[in-house]
Amino acid sequence: MSTLTPEVTWAQRSSDSDETRNYLYVFINVPDVPSSSADTKINPTSVSFKGTNIKGAKYSVTLDLYDEIDPENSKTSHSPRGVELVLRKKKLGLEYWPRLLKESKKAHFIKTDFDKWVDEDEQDEAADDDYAANFGGFGEDGGLGGIDFSKLGGGGLPGAAGGEEEEEEEEDDEDLPELEGDEKPGKKIEEVA
């Protein structure tokens, strides 16, 4: 069986004064790879992953990073969906890395993670309790980071409260002409030539 290159998504933050706000988010999409058969290595200039999923598919990827990171202050979390990494950039600075990899050639398997991405000029406005603080996107209580689901949608489904709208729809159906083949017993439809 051949070795597959997994999809890698990434985003970043930068700071010239706070090293805890100077990091990369990297997700290696390797579903169903148990942590017992996964090998993730974080070095100052590269990250590598090798593993085999429960169906026997082998994954391998090495990322030669654009600049140096601090392996001791980086985090790894293995889940059934893949490997999540928060990599601390070694150099402080407001400027974003122009790309994840050292080589400027486009890598087909690397994508921007737009769910975590914040534009460089808007990163100070991003909440401090974002992904890095609540590693994996969950709050300290294991919940969904204090999301108020009641504020996410409109008023619900039509007719769900009292069923009045359903009755009105049935009444409106009586005024519609019958479709061909939907003849009601006792009614004869005349053909027009």
Rank of each mutant, 00 (worst) to 15 (best):
E169Q: 06
D64K: 08
T52P: 04
K106Q: 11
K111P: 08
D182C: 11
V26L: 13
G181L: 13
E164R: 00
G142H: 03
K55Y: 08
L92K: 00
Y66M: 10
D64S: 11
K187R: 11
V61M: 02
S15A: 03
D32I: 03
D175C: 05
F109Q: 09
P80H: 00
D32A: 11
I42R: 01
F135R: 03
W117H: 14
E7V: 10
M1D: 14
E170H: 01
G153C: 09
D121P: 03
K184V: 05
S60H: 03
P185L: 05
E19N: 07
K89E: 09
P177S: 06
F114W: 12
G139S: 06
E178W: 06
D39V: 07
K151V: 06
T45R: 13
T9G: 01
R13S: 05
D39P: 01
V192E: 15
Q12S: 09
D172H: 04
S79K: 11
G154E: 13
K75L: 15
K89H: 02
P158S: 12
S35G: 00
R13Q: 10
F114Y: 15
Q123N: 08
L87I: 05
N29F: 00
T20W: 02
E68H: 04
E103S: 15
A11C: 10
T52I: 15
V26F: 06
K50N: 15
E167I: 02
T3S: 05
K58W: 00
F109I: 01
Q12I: 04
K91T: 14
E68T: 12
D16M: 02
L85A: 11
Y23R: 07
I110G: 08
K116N: 14
K58D: 09
P185Q: 08
I110Y: 06
T5W: 08
E84S: 14
S104L: 01
A160E: 15
E95Q: 13
K75W: 10
K91I: 05
E178P: 01
T52W: 02
H78V: 14
F138N: 10
F27K: 04
E84I: 03
P71F: 06
V192A: 13
R21P: 02
K55S: 15
E191P: 00
D130N: 14
E167S: 04
G56R: 01
R13T: 00
G153N: 14
K188V: 13
S150R: 15
K116W: 04
R99C: 06
T52L: 01
E178N: 07
A161W: 02
V86P: 01
N73Y: 00
Y59E: 02
T3M: 03
G93C: 08
A57Q: 15
E174T: 06
D119L: 11
V118D: 06
D173P: 02
D39S: 12
D121V: 01
K111F: 12
S37A: 12
R21Y: 05
S35V: 15
S2V: 13
T45F: 10
P177C: 07
A132Q: 09
A161L: 08
T45H: 12
G153Q: 12
T40G: 06
F49A: 01
F27N: 01
L65I: 04
Y23V: 07
D173R: 10
E166D: 14
A38Y: 06
